[in-house]
């Protein structure tokens, strides 16, 4: 966990809810392109896209979190950076970059979902901070990355 007192989060919407990823993990945000479907055992693997010649997996965040799978037309793909690779995450829209105090983050051990790192309470809003490693079972992240996140 970071020792700094503030963190910057990229906040995006998914249905009625708001989610966030640490900005240090977000490489870029691209417009929706239909991923090339692949045969995966995981239902939330939407397929692969080409990002400047590199083949990057795209994960359906809504399916992963058990939300409705309908995506609006202006859906975006957030490219999450990992030490060895990158992965795309499908979201409805990207809203803002938010700076939060560490104390605004409540860890949610009871949730039992490794995908969720904490919940940020900002005024009346609840923003779910996602853990990119727990989110996709470490998919696409290597051990070094895991160690770095755990540190």
């Amino acid at each position: 966990m970071s020792t700094e007192s503030t963190r910057q989060l990229v906040v995006f919407s998914l249905g009625e809810e708001e989610y966030a990823l640490p900005i240090t993990r977000v490489h870029e945000i691209i417009r929706w392109t239909e991923p090339r479907s692949v045969a995966s055992d995981e239902p939330w693997v939407r397929g692969v896209i080409s990002l400047r010649g590199k083949i990057v997996p795209v994960y359906d965040l809504a399916a992963r979190l058990g939300l409705a799978a309908e995506r609006p037309e202006h859906a975006k793909i957030v490219i999450v950076e990992t030490a060895a690779d990158m992965a795309g995450v499908v979201v409805d829209d990207v809203e803002e970059v938010l700076t939060v105090e560490e104390e605004q983050l409540d860890s949610v051990p009871a949730a039992g979902d490794p995908a969720i790192e904490a919940i940020a309470k900002i005024d009346q809003r609840l923003v779910v901070l996602l853990d990119p490693v727990g989110l996709f079972g470490g998919a696409g992240l290597d051990a070094e990355q895991l160690a770095e996140v755990a540190a």
Partner: peptide, 13 residues
């Protein structure tokens, strides 16, 4: 290009 490791485990690609 290599495929991401977990996306094509059940097909012959």
């Amino acid at each position: 290009r290599p495929l991401p490791s977990d996306v094509s485990d059940s097909a012959a690609v």
